[in-house]
């Protein structure tokens, strides 16, 4: 698991290098927009916390409105 994690991290760093080198701020912000929530999810997964999917939340809301099978 650690090996694959390290490989993923290395590829990600290789991907980040041209972004930082050419100072592509927009690309960096977009990358962080996905990485930060990803890290939060990873933290939750490590703690064993299962978050309700948005689709389940909407389904429960629709059910309360009577829109469900």
């Amino acid at each position: 698991m650690i090996v694959i994690g390290v490989i993923y991290l290395l590829i990600m760093i290789m991907d980040f290098y041209p972004i930082i080198k050419h100072k592509k701020v927009k690309h960096l912000i977009i990358n962080l927009m996905f990485i930060i929530p990803g890290l939060i999810f990873l933290f939750l997964a490590a703690k064993g916390i299962i978050v309700k999917s948005w689709i389940t939340i909407i389904w429960e809301f629709l059910k309360s409105l009577g829109i469900s099978y």
Binding site: P18, K24, H27, L32, I35
Partner: peptide, 9 residues
């Protein structure tokens, strides 16, 4: 450049 970060998410 954004493929892997989307993948991580």
């Amino acid at each position: 450049n954004i493929v892997l970060s989307v993948g991580f998410f």
